[in-house]
C-alpha cells in the first residue's frame, strides 16, 4: 500500500465539476442503473449510511460525493473482476445535500443522486 497513490487532488476538489474532472468523469450521464440507498432524513448527520449498487456490466469504479461537504469526494472504490458492484459505507454530512454516486463501467462514466435531509430535530406526535 503506497500512500502516494491517494488521489489528493480529487479529495481536495471544491466543486462537483472539479471532482468529476479529476477522476476523469467529465460530465457523467445520469443512469437509473446506478442505485443509491441512503435515508431521506439522516438520523445522525455524522453517520449517514450510503450504499451504491451499479447494475451496469463491467463496473470497475464507484465514487461517493456529497455536494455540500467541504471535501465533496467521500470515498472511491476500485472493483476488480469477481467483486460485486455494490458497496456500503457511512459518511458525515454537515447539512442537507445531494449525495452523488459516480460509476465507471467499461471506460464510461455514469452517475445518480439522492437528497439526504439533515434536520435540527425535536418534534413529535
Amino acid at each position: 500500500l503506497a500512500q502516494a497513490a491517494w488521489n489528493k487532488e480529487a479529495f481536495e476538489a471544491k466543486s462537483l465539476d472539479a471532482a468529476f474532472g479529476v477522476i476523469g468523469a467529465g460530465k457523467p450521464a445520469e443512469s437509473g442503473d446506478v442505485v443509491i440507498t441512503a435515508p431521506d432524513i439522516a438520523e445522525n448527520g455524522a453517520v449517514v449510511p450510503v450504499g451504491v449498487v451499479s447494475n451496469i456490466p463491467k463496473t470497475e469504479y464507484i465514487a461517493i460525493m456529497i455536494e455540500k461537504n467541504p471535501n465533496m469526494l467521500a470515498a472511491s472504490f476500485t472493483i476488480p473482476d469477481g467483486t460485486v458492484a455494490e458497496v456500503q459505507t457511512r459518511v458525515k454530512m454537515g447539512q442537507t445535500s445531494d449525495v452523488y454516486a459516480v460509476v465507471k463501467a467499461d471506460g464510461k462514466f455514469y452517475m445518480s443522486k439522492k437528497e439526504v435531509k439533515v434536520t435540527l430535530g425535536g418534534c413529535g406526535g
Binding site: 469526494l73 470515498a75 472493483i79
Partner: peptide, 9 residues
C-alpha cells in the same frame, strides 16, 4: 476491493 477514503467518511 481497494478503496480511497477522505475526511468525509
Amino acid at each position: 476491493l481497494s478503496a480511497e477514503f477522505g475526511p468525509s467518511v
